[in-house]
Design a protein around this nucleic acid. Sequence first.
DNA 1: CCGTAACTGAAAATCATTTTCATTTAGCCC
DNA 2: GGGCTAAATGAAAATGATTTTCAGTTACGG
Lengths: 150, 150
Amino acid sequence: MQNPPSDYDAKRVAHWREVLRANGYRITPTREAVLRALSAGNYALEATEIFERARRFAPHLGLVTVYRTLDAMLSLGLVERVHCTGQCSLYVAAEEGHHHILVCRKCRRVWHFSGDDLTNLMNDVANESGFVIEDHWLQLVGLCPECRDS
Amino acid sequence: MQNPPSDYDAKRVAHWREVLRANGYRITPTREAVLRALSAGNYALEATEIFERARRFAPHLGLVTVYRTLDAMLSLGLVERVHCTGQCSLYVAAEEGHHHILVCRKCRRVWHFSGDDLTNLMNDVANESGFVIEDHWLQLVGLCPECRDS
DNA sequence: CCGTAACTGAAAATCATTTTCATTTAGCCC
DNA sequence: GGGCTAAATGAAAATGATTTTCAGTTACGG
């Protein structure tokens, strides 16, 4: 794991604050702390890791609030779930637009990419199976440059 | 959910039995019951569902044995995990060769397909990110013909 | 058929997540 | 600048899936 950053991405936090507010969510100090924890760096984090980091900004924060804030942010598309080997409850700040995730299995650094074109494949599979395909998940797992070298 | 089948795929079970035995696992009546439960139909099942079905073949079976057998089979590649919306612990009989899964979000019927060619995409992403890509994970979610019509 | 390492189920432990509930507070209205 | 009210809060309890422990049982090679 990387060293937990003690600062945060103020711009990203401001944006998230706006989106939350625009959707009827109140901005509380604890929620702000969770936003900050999630804004810093592109690493897939567990709920408890987010909790630990957010506590630096709001020491009395409860883990329940982390879960509640994550739910809100997930439903607004501000964060997304990351599936890692044997870990299906990691969270990372979402990026705009259609894209997928490449995650380092060691430090859980996340790289966003787009450019996949699965429409042909999906059409073929839909035709032969008779299914209506509604969604597709693509995720790559590997080692980031730092973890590869160590 | 489909109606739980009371029979099983004897050929598949026999094959699994061989693989388990060849890898030093013993064939017990309870394990056999789990194999049978997994062999019938291509549906992604939770551990507890496998448990219920396997109990028809071995009424005193414990849930722990289901988990232990699943672990063994996962490590031998005989079953694979299926990730569904909000569900990351479903299991389905694996198929030979490289392939991916299309799962019905309603009845959890599974369709295996291959023919994806992600090598170009993966090379591109590896180059721009500097990551070594070790694994890729692709899954489609949709509705099977029966669930689509109802 | 014997010995032993593997396997077993029940119960307890663990761990992540959700629910409950009494209290506090953000943000709107005046 | 209060005051109001629904939303949000943390602690504790509940839940649910999975793992560990353990004493007894059993598959299977010799």
